[in-house]
């Protein structure tokens, strides 16, 4: 299925949860990321429940500061 992640189109083998998506996308520190899907910020507790759907627009929003962010 096709989704957009941070503005870029991606082909994903779905369906999968947000938690699984963070792994597939190789996000090293998921604790340092907020996730927005179609304009709504998710609760962290929902990461294991929310299923990513075709055409979803997903933003990984990284904590930045203190010599740290979730990008690496």
């Amino acid at each position: 299925m096709k989704v957009q992640i941070n503005g870029q189109e991606k082909e994903l083998a779905g369906p999968l949860t947000v938690e699984e998506l963070l792994k597939v996308e190789n996000v090293k520190m998921p604790e340092m990321v907020s996730v927005e899907i179609n304009g709504e910020i998710l609760d962290r507790e929902q990461f294991s429940e929310v299923i990513v759907k075709e055409d979803d627009e997903i933003e990984f929003l990284y904590f930045m500061g203190g010599g740290a962010c979730g990008l690496y």
Binding site: F63, G65, C69
Partner: peptide, 29 residues
Amino acid sequence: GIIRFHGQLTTYIPDNNTPCYRCIFKQPP
């Protein structure tokens, strides 16, 4: 916030239904 080759910013305006930093990031890591 800035780190390595990345930066981010947002502006908060009160009484304007503006999201705050905590709306995006619920609590510190």
